[in-house]
Computed example of a mutant assay.
Amino acid sequence: MPNFAGLITIDPKRSIGSITAMVTLEEVSTDTLQVTEHPVEQGANINDHAFVQPSEVVIRCGWSNSSLSGLLSGIGQSVSALFGGSAFGSDYVSSVYNQLLALQQSRIPFDVSTGKRTYQNMLMRSLALTTDPTSENALMCTVVCRQVIIVQTQATTLPPRDSQATPQATGEVANMGTKQVATAYPAPGGWQPPNG
């Protein structure tokens, strides 16, 4: 059994959901405030004319089959292949890629932790990767995550109509049934003025 006592491991705090990147090359975060284009009256509440848009994070990260996790995964895959399992597409980076795809397809909000901040209620908007001869045994991808703004609504009931000063203006909406438009036809002999 190999002695791994000399290895120093540092637990990274960067993660996409429950998936921890082996290496993070770049994180680009965007927080935008949408401000009205229309003039605002002097003294008006500016909060009514600006709102925060969902946060977006672009992460360039990677994994490798030659890492410790990749090597340990490779040993397990080799044993599986010896006993009839398929080794095609079942290496460590393929496994991570499948986890990323599953996270995106689940459409369940998750947290993203970067070096500066933790973003909550994120969804993976896009997952892009390129494989060429130099990156065949590595997974280098660009993950774009966008925040879903989740709000809580609350239902309430109004006081009875007879307790209101102007129930026609403030009362609950009442179902008055289906209304139909009737076609108007002129009276025989034409229209007569009200005075005769």
Rank of each mutant, 00 (worst) to 15 (best):
V52L: 07
N195P: 06
V151I: 13
A165H: 09
K179Q: 13
S163E: 15
Q42Y: 13
S86G: 09
E172D: 13
Q192L: 05
I19N: 00
V28H: 12
G89C: 07
T157Q: 13
D91R: 09
A102N: 08
A81F: 04
G76Y: 10
A102P: 00
M122V: 02
G196V: 09
Q104L: 02
M176H: 00
D132L: 09
P54H: 06
M176Y: 08
E172M: 04
S95A: 09
N121F: 09
C145I: 11
I16T: 05
Q164R: 14
A187I: 00
Q34A: 13
C145A: 12
T130Y: 05
L129S: 10
L68S: 09
E172N: 12
G89Y: 06
S163V: 11
P159Q: 14
T153P: 00
L103P: 01
T157D: 14
Q42P: 06
G76W: 11
P39V: 05
E27A: 12
N121L: 10
A81W: 05
T142A: 06
S64E: 03
V40N: 08
V58R: 14
T130S: 08
V28W: 06
S80V: 00
G177M: 08
P2C: 09
N98Q: 11
K179T: 14
E27W: 04
G84V: 11
T32Y: 00
S126D: 07
C61F: 00
L82N: 10
R146M: 01
V57Q: 13
I75Y: 13
H49P: 02
Q120P: 04
P39R: 06
L129H: 11
D91W: 04
I59N: 07
Q53D: 08
C141T: 08
E26N: 15
G171I: 09
Q192F: 02
V144I: 04
L82D: 12
R161D: 10
L101A: 11
Q77A: 15
L127W: 08
A182P: 04
